[in-house]
Design a protein around this nucleic acid. Structure first.
Length: 201
DNA sequence: CTATAGATAATCT
DNA sequence: GATTATCTATAGG
């Protein structure tokens, strides 16, 4: 019998690289609003681009906590972004949720975002957070309990073609191939044609 | 199509 | 005081 429940905590107790890759094609919902994940980025503790690189602080504490809890941060004076904490407790690693294909709650997402085109609803980490209504109140919540839900790809749904590129907007223009995308998705924050495919990941 | 400026405030040095 | 895992609007080719 196929499992139909949410992803268990053990899913996140692995390398952020593996989690980021395996999250492509899964679905994420906040209070029933969400869709299919098409873009993620991995951040590991000893990578200078990771918020946990300089050690634990009040802001990044969730990254060092148990895996599978949501790390929400505020940046540029106006944007929230959401990650799932990964690897074992005490390790500062996570996966940034960068884009999803809207599936449920289209009307609410449209109202929150103030745009009409489905392409612009959740194609980018701050857009995704705004569309799903993610804010400080969600920081630290486990993703397998309401109001959050992170569900595996339905049995029978085709496996996505996952491709890796450099991460977007990171300091130093770091070129590690730690961005994971569904190569056939039309809902990426940046098209693959402008983000050269890198080997490995 | 690409490039760049401006918004705007928590966080960290 | 500097920086920021971004987004939008606008200007230019």
């Amino acid at each position: 019998m196929p499992s139909v429940g949410p992803l268990p905590q053990s899913f996140f107790a692995r390398s952020a690289l593996d989690v980021a890759r395996d999250l492509i094609g899964c679905s994420f919902f906040v209070a029933g609003v969400g869709g299919r994940i098409v873009e993620t980025e991995a951040y590991r503790q000893h990578d200078p681009c990771c918020h946990a690189y300089n050690g634990r602080t009040e802001r990044n504490a969730v990254l060092f906590g148990p895996p599978g809890h949501l790390y929400v941060y505020f940046t540029y004076g106006m944007h929230f972004c959401a990650n799932t904490a990964c690897e074992e407790e005490g390790t500062g690693a996570g996966v940034l949720l960068r884009a999803l294909e809207p599936a449920t709650g289209l009307e609410l997402m449209t109202a929150r975002r103030g745009v009409e085109q489905p392409r612009l609803l959740a194609s980018g980490p701050a857009r995704l957070a705004q569309a799903l209504g993610i804010g400080r109140a969600h920081n630290g919540l486990p993703v397998w309990e309401p109001p959050l839900a992170l569900c595996p790809r339905p049995a029978g749904a085709p496996a996505p073609e996952v491709v890796t590129t450099a991460r977007i907007g990171v300091r130093g223009g770091d070129q590690r191939p730690w961005r994971f995308v569904d190569a056939r998705s039309a809902f990426l924050s940046r098209p693959l044609t402008r983000t050269p495919i890198l080997p490995g990941g």
